[in-house]
Amino acid sequence: MNTLIIDTGCANLASLHHALKRLGIHADISAEPAAIHAADKLLLPGVGTASAAMASLTARGLIPVIQHATQPLLGICLGMQLLTAHSAEGDLATLGLIPGQTTRLSAHDLPLPHMGWNRVHATPGHPLFADILPDSHYYFVHSYAVLESPATIATCDYGVSFAAALARDNYYGVQFHPERSGSAGARLLHNFIHNT
């Protein structure tokens, strides 16, 4: 299995790389289109702002490469938000691969960013959440979130319900950080590599 972490220029790649290594999964890190095309599984991590991430992807020539990927791709945190059509963070178009909009969290009186462990309610039977206990906790760090849509396969509540995970065709996304989410996160990464 040829697994590749896309080097977006805006993510802590080492943490994800080590999490996969602990699972016995070797993953290369690259921004080269040829390496991305040749991979069996792709991971798209991201931290920071949507505008900075889209600028970095544009500068690296990665937007059409990601948009035309045919293998399973997992967007993580900001990487998931970039898969949607639009982000209110900078009011800009994003990759448009999964229907949905990224908006600032309406957390009411709760502090932002939403940071720490929170419960995730996953759609029963989805392969991404196979063999994970229902309503498991995952680690979040974000101030923007994707509104629920038909592509939502898991939700989380933080003042408002938002999409914790998305899936459409070969594109998947999780708002939380599986590489920092203990056994549930490790199992989700395993499921993405082996079940999608």
Rank of each mutant, 00 (worst) to 15 (best):
H17F: 10
K21E: 13
R22V: 14
I25N: 02
A27M: 04
I29L: 11
I29R: 00
S30I: 11
A31M: 06
P33F: 12
P33M: 13
A35D: 01
A35M: 06
A38G: 15
A39E: 01
D40A: 12
K41E: 07
L42K: 05
L43V: 09
P45Y: 05
P45C: 07
V47W: 01
G48C: 13
T49C: 06
T49N: 11
S51Y: 07
M54V: 10
S56N: 15
S56D: 08
A59V: 08
P64F: 08
I66V: 13
Q67P: 10
H68L: 05
L74R: 08
I76P: 03
I76H: 02
C77H: 04
C77W: 01
G90Y: 03
L92A: 13
I98T: 03
I98L: 02
G100D: 08
R104A: 15
L105S: 08
S106M: 10
S106I: 09
A107N: 02
A107P: 02
H108I: 12
H108G: 05
L110D: 13
P111Y: 10
L112N: 11
L112S: 07
P113T: 02
H114M: 01
M115G: 14
R119M: 14
V120P: 08
H121T: 15
L128C: 00
F129Q: 10
F129A: 12
F129W: 11
I132R: 04
L133C: 09
P134Q: 01
Y138I: 12
H142P: 01
Y144D: 03
A145M: 08
L147A: 15
S149K: 09
P150H: 10
A154L: 00
A154P: 00
